[in-house]
Design a protein around this nucleic acid. Sequence first.
DNA 1: CATGAATGAGTTTTCATTCAT
DNA 2: CATGAATGAAAACTCATTCAT
Lengths: 222, 222, 222, 222
Amino acid sequence: MGAVKTKRMPRAVREQQMLDAAVRTFGQRGYMAASMDEIAELAGVSKPLVYLYLNSKEDLFTACIRREATALVAAVRAGVRTDLPADRQLWAGLRAFFAHTAQHPDAWSVLHLQARTHGEVFAAEVTAMRDEIVTFVTQLIAAAAREAHRNPDLPEREVAGLAEALVGAAESLAAWANATEGVTARQAATTLMNFAWSGLGDLMAGRPWSPPEEEPLTRPGG
Amino acid sequence: MGAVKTKRMPRAVREQQMLDAAVRTFGQRGYMAASMDEIAELAGVSKPLVYLYLNSKEDLFTACIRREATALVAAVRAGVRTDLPADRQLWAGLRAFFAHTAQHPDAWSVLHLQARTHGEVFAAEVTAMRDEIVTFVTQLIAAAAREAHRNPDLPEREVAGLAEALVGAAESLAAWANATEGVTARQAATTLMNFAWSGLGDLMAGRPWSPPEEEPLTRPGG
Amino acid sequence: MGAVKTKRMPRAVREQQMLDAAVRTFGQRGYMAASMDEIAELAGVSKPLVYLYLNSKEDLFTACIRREATALVAAVRAGVRTDLPADRQLWAGLRAFFAHTAQHPDAWSVLHLQARTHGEVFAAEVTAMRDEIVTFVTQLIAAAAREAHRNPDLPEREVAGLAEALVGAAESLAAWANATEGVTARQAATTLMNFAWSGLGDLMAGRPWSPPEEEPLTRPGG
Amino acid sequence: MGAVKTKRMPRAVREQQMLDAAVRTFGQRGYMAASMDEIAELAGVSKPLVYLYLNSKEDLFTACIRREATALVAAVRAGVRTDLPADRQLWAGLRAFFAHTAQHPDAWSVLHLQARTHGEVFAAEVTAMRDEIVTFVTQLIAAAAREAHRNPDLPEREVAGLAEALVGAAESLAAWANATEGVTARQAATTLMNFAWSGLGDLMAGRPWSPPEEEPLTRPGG
DNA sequence: CATGAATGAGTTTTCATTCAT
DNA sequence: CATGAATGAAAACTCATTCAT
C-alpha cells in the first residue's frame, strides 16, 4: 500500500551503482575534489547509505580501485591465449589493454592518475595490480628468451626493467590514444609492438614487427 | 634539522626557500592535501608572507611547476651533444633525465603526478615542457631514420607514437628506479636504451644495444 | 537568556531563527563587522548550517533586507486606509512607519544604514522598497493637489522632490525617535505632520496641522 | 647631491595628503573595505608613515570625519548672514549645504554613511557636528517664532523635532540631488524651502515660498 | 532501511600593524 | 625620516561524517 518510491534493491546492486558513480566522479573531478555529496546524488541514494555500505571516502576509493583493477586485469587476461608464441601473446594483451582503457576512461583515470597521486595506501593498491601485469610480461619475456635459445639467462633485474619499460610505455600510450583524435586501440597496440619488439634500430633499418592476421578480440559466445 | 629561523632575507632568496618548501610538500602530500600552513612552516616563514610573494595556492603551484620544468629541461639539454649520432644523443639525454629525476624526486612527483592530476591549467603547464622533450625525441628518431637511408619516410603519426612510447617508458622507469632499491640512473638508462633501440626481438636474439665507452655525465670544469 | 539549544527543527523555522540573529547582528555590528561565527552562535546553530541554508554572507544579508523591507512595507500598508483624505492617509502611514521602526530598531538599522553602505547590490534591494513608499507618497501629494483644486499641475519633478524630502525627514526622525529618550512614535508622527503639512511658516503663524481623533493603530480582531 | 626622490614636505602638508587619500578611499570603498595599503599608495607615501602620523585606522578615520565635519559646518556658516530674517538665513544655509555636499561627494559619503555605519565612536563624532547644525536650525526656528509674535512658546522638544526633520530632509535631498541627473544644488534648496517653510498644505493651496532675488553664493574677493 | 538535520575541524585568504635597516 | 620585510589574528567558507526519526 502507498506509493513505492524507492525500489528496494539488493545490497550488492546498490553497491555497484555507488561504485559506478564514484568511479565516474573520482575519475573526472579527482579524489579530493570529488565530494561525497556529489557521488551520493549521482548514485541516486542518500549520503548516509553510502557510509553504511562503503564506510568512508577512503574505503570507497579503495573499493573503486580494487574493482577497476580487477576488471582491467581480467580484460587483459581474457585477451591472451597462453598457447601462442610470446610476441602473439603480447600483441593480444596490448590490444585488450588499449581496448579496455579506451572504453573506460574514468576507470583508467582512477587507476593511472588518481590512485597514484593521493597517498601511498592507494598507490599500493594499484601497484599490486600493476605488479601482476608486470610479472606476466616478465614471464613472457623470459619465455621468449628461452624459446630463442640464444639468450637464456638475461639477468633477472634486467628483465624486470624491460617489463617495467614496456608497461610504462603502454600506460603512457593509453593516455595518448585517449587524448589524440583518431588514434584507435589497434593503432596504439601496433605502434607499441613495433617499438617494443623490433626496437628503433630495426625500425630504422626497415624491419618492423608485423601484426598477425586479423582475429576478433572477443569471440562470440566466449 | 628544521629550517634555521633566519630573518630579513631579500625577497628573491625567500621566494626560493618558499618554492623549495612547496615542491617538497606538494610532491609528498599532493596538491590538495598540502596545506599552505605546512608549506609556510617548512619554509620557516609566516603564511601571509607566502601570500604576499606568491599570491595564491594556485600561483604557488604554478611557480613550482615552472621552476622544476625549466630545471628538468635544462638538465636534459645540458647532457646532450647535438654533434653525436642519434643513439648517442638519446643515450646522453636519458642519462641526464634519470639522473635529474633521481636527485629531485619531489620535483618529479610534482611534474609527473601532481601537475597532471589537478586541473587542466596545471597539466597544460607540464604538457608544454613535455612537448618540448617529445619534439626533441621525435626529431631524433626522424634523423636516425634518414641516417639509416632505409626508412626515410616513416609516417609522421607513427613517429609521434614512437616518441610518445619512448618518453612514456622513460617516465615510468624514472619512478621505478626511484622506488627500486639499488637501481642507478645509469642502469635505468641502459635498460631503456636496450629496450628502445634494439627492441625485445633483437634482445632475444642476443643483439643488445651497447652503451659507448664511459664518459662522465658532467665534466670537470663544466 | 541565551538561545535555548533546541534541536532538530524543521528547516523553515531554523531559517527564521537565523534571519533573526542575522538582522540583530548586522543591525548592531554592521555588515562587515558582523561575523558569520557570531550570527551562527546567536542563532544557536553551527556555521555550516547557516551556509547550508543561506548560502553565503551576501545571500544572508540580502535575505535579511528582503524580509525586513517586506515587513516594513506591509506594516505601512496595513496602517493606511485609502478611502480617507490625503492628509489622513499620510498621518496613518507615518504612525505605522514610526511604530514599526521603533519596534524593530535593528531591522531599521539594516535597511536604513547597512544596506545603503555596503554595495550597490544591497542598496538596490532597499531602493526598490523605498521607491514603493516614495511612489505612494508622490501619489498622495498629487491627489491632494487635485483635491485642493488650486494647484493641479505641480511639475512632476517638483512633486518627486517633495516626496523625497518627506520620506527623508521621516527616515531621519525615526532614528531620532529611537535615540531620544521619551519620544513616542505618535509624537514623531505628529511633529512630522506639522512640519510637512503646515510648514514652518504656518507653524510660526500659529496654524498647526491638527491630528484627528485618536484611533487605534491596529484594531482588535484585525 | 644625488637625485632628490622624495620631496621633504612639512608634516602638516603630508597629513593633509593622507587625509585627502583617506577621505576618497573611505568614501568610495567604505570604512572596512578600504585598506591602509590602498590609502598609503593613493597618498603616495609608505604605510609606516601613515601610522607614524595618524596612529591607526580608527584614528585616521576619526581625523577624516573631524576634518570634513568642520569643513561642512564652516561652509554652511560662511553662507549665512545672521542679520537677515529667519527664512532668508535658512535659505542661505541650505544653498551652502547642498553646494558643499555636491562638490565633495566622498566627504559627504564619509559623514552621512560611513561614519554612521561603523561603530558608535564614529557616529558620535558626526553627531557632534550634526548637533551643531541642528542647534543652529533650532535657534532659527525659535527666533522665527518670536519674530512672528504669534507662537512664542512652541515646546522645546517640538522645536527640536522640527529641526531634526528639516535637517533629515536636507540630508536625504543631498543624496537625492547627487544621484539624480540634472538636479542642481539650487533646485534642491528651493524644493526644500518650499516644503519646509510653506508646507504641503500651503503648496496645495497655491502658496509656495518664493526664493529671494539671486545673490551669489560666494562673493568675489571672499 | 532511508533521510533530513546538524556539526567539528580544517581550508584558503586578508588585513592592520610593527620592526630593522 | 622612509621603507622593505614580516606577522598575529581572524574571516569566509567547505567537507567528511553522524544522529534522531
